[in-house]
């Protein structure tokens, strides 16, 4: 990809926002990065996904180091999650590179919406006691 100076500034700012978002919400940030790369940088979908995963490595490490200082990271849980995650990622990436992933994505989307509503309602109750 050819980058002009102006575009470099835009990508740096996008990266900053992604890093902030990632550490705050415990996610990789690919949800922002992949569409950003496809729509703004004109990178193809698969290359955007691969690039996103590469960027997530240092981003997540930086976030974990910052959270660890405050005692928020459970490494015993993280190890088990990460072990299962590595197997799942291998499978998921193979699917992505080979087939249309529409129905699987919709299944995840439905779960995410229901889970989000439930977590928000837990938060709502915590903030309005009684």
């Amino acid at each position: 990809m050819e980058l002009s100076l102006g575009l470099i500034v835009v990508v740096l700012l996008a990266g900053f926002f992604v890093g902030f978002f990632s550490a705050m919400f415990g996610v990789g940030g690919g949800v922002i990065m992949v569409p950003f790369m496809v729509l703004v940088l004109g990178i193809t979908q698969h290359t955007a996904e691969g690039t996103s995963l590469l960027v997530i490595i240092p981003t997540a490490i930086a976030g974990v180091l910052a959270h660890r200082r405050r005692g928020f990271v459970s490494f015993s849980h993280g190890l088990l999650l990460g072990g299962g995650g590595a197997i799942g990622a291998c499978l998921g990436a193979s699917f992505a590179l080979r087939i249309e992933e529409g129905s699987l994505t919709r299944g995840f989307a439905a779960f995410v919406i229901v889970a989000g509503l439930r977590i928000a309602s837990q938060g709502w109750k915590l903030r309005s006691p009684g």
Binding site: G26, A60, V64, F72, G78, L81, A93
Partner: peptide, 20 residues
């Protein structure tokens, strides 16, 4: 949030290797 981020590291390593 913090623990999820730790688990994301191996996920991203494996995923990036496959795409790479």
């Amino acid at each position: 949030h913090a623990t999820s981020l730790a688990a994301i590291i191996p996920i991203a390593v494996v995923g990036a290797a496959r795409f790479g």
